Computed example of a mutant assay.
Amino acid sequence: MELRTRTLGDICDDAGGEIKTGPFGSQLHQSDYSENGTPVVMPKNIIDGTVSVADIARIADQHVERLSQHCLKVGDIVYGRRGDIGRHALIKSREDGWLCGTGCLRITAGNGELQPNFLHYYLDQDDVKGWILNQAVGATMPNLNTTILRSVPVTYPSRESQRKIAAILSAYDDLIENNLRRIKILEEIAQNLYREWFVKFRFPGHANVRMVDSPLGKIPEGWEIVSIDDVATVHRGRSYRSKDLVDDGGLPFVNLKCIDRDGGFRRNGL
């Protein structure tokens, strides 16, 4: 398989693409946001390679027209400019026409040698993310810019080989997504069962159990009310500094990045 290596900027330039910063604060004001309208992709919406619509901001149509140069198209890749700068999302048909928000960068590969899906998976490699992080500027918080993204070296095969590679990886992603949906459904079932049994007290055989008074109201006879300290030990997490962490080996360190908004565990935050 013949491979080529070029910078991402050169590839985009030759293909009519671009690497562009999202609108600045002077272009998109807080007063421009509304309850309804076109979604605006912010860094917080970039999760696990996709765009999350949880708490996504929106702007009215007149502002979208004014900021049309920042509209997203299928195949674009969006990066957050600060913090966890390795995060990026591939824009799919659902997000076509949405706006690249303040604090983000947009990559449009164009119609050339690079297939967008392949580029998305290529940029998700640990060594590529590490290279980008090493180039990022900012003493306390890494900052990404167009110059860094343009200089990313990309090694790629023919466009047909890229398509095949991306198709295989995409099939695995679809399988993972389907399994995550099933897990979410099972979690909802478990939560409903918990509420039914331990909040509403409608557990199997509840009709034959007498309800008695307690400081929290009526509870089934034989049940107790205790504090967490009575049944568990609460430990404070260990403080650490960035110099204590290593890229390879060592014991995984669970921090806030490992915990998603739904109370689940994200291994890619380790």
Rank of each mutant, 00 (worst) to 15 (best):
F203T: 12
R94G: 02
P252E: 13
S34L: 11
R210H: 06
G86P: 10
Q135K: 15
V128G: 01
L193P: 01
Y122E: 00
L180T: 00
I259V: 15
N208C: 01
R163V: 10
E95D: 09
Q191P: 02
R66N: 08
I91A: 01
K92L: 10
L3A: 07
A89V: 01
N111H: 03
G37H: 14
I91S: 05
M141W: 04
E188S: 10
V209R: 04
T7S: 15
L186Y: 08
W197L: 13
L144I: 09
Y240L: 03
K129Q: 08
I183E: 07
L105N: 11
W131D: 08
G263C: 11
C100R: 04
V64F: 10
D14A: 15
D173W: 09
V74D: 12
K243Q: 07
D84R: 15
R267G: 03
V78W: 13
C71R: 14
G49D: 08
N192D: 07
R236I: 00
N145G: 09
V53P: 00
G264S: 06
I59G: 03
M141N: 06
T50D: 08
S161E: 15
V137K: 15
R87P: 09
Q115T: 01
G249T: 02
D48Q: 10
C104W: 06
G138D: 10
L169G: 11
D124T: 00
N208H: 06
K218D: 03
V209P: 04
Y172T: 08
I259K: 15
G97L: 04
G263I: 11
D14S: 15
V78I: 13
A54T: 08
S151Y: 04
L149D: 05
L119S: 13
E2S: 12
I77V: 12
T38W: 05
K73R: 13
L180Y: 00
D244I: 09
L216R: 09
Q125P: 00
I107L: 15
D61V: 08
H235C: 00
E18Q: 08
M42V: 03
S34E: 14
Y172S: 11
I91K: 09
G103H: 13
I56C: 02
N255C: 14
M42S: 11
R163T: 13
I219W: 01
A166R: 10
R94D: 14
H29A: 07
I148G: 05
K129Y: 04
V128C: 01
G22I: 07
V40C: 05
Y121N: 00
M211N: 04
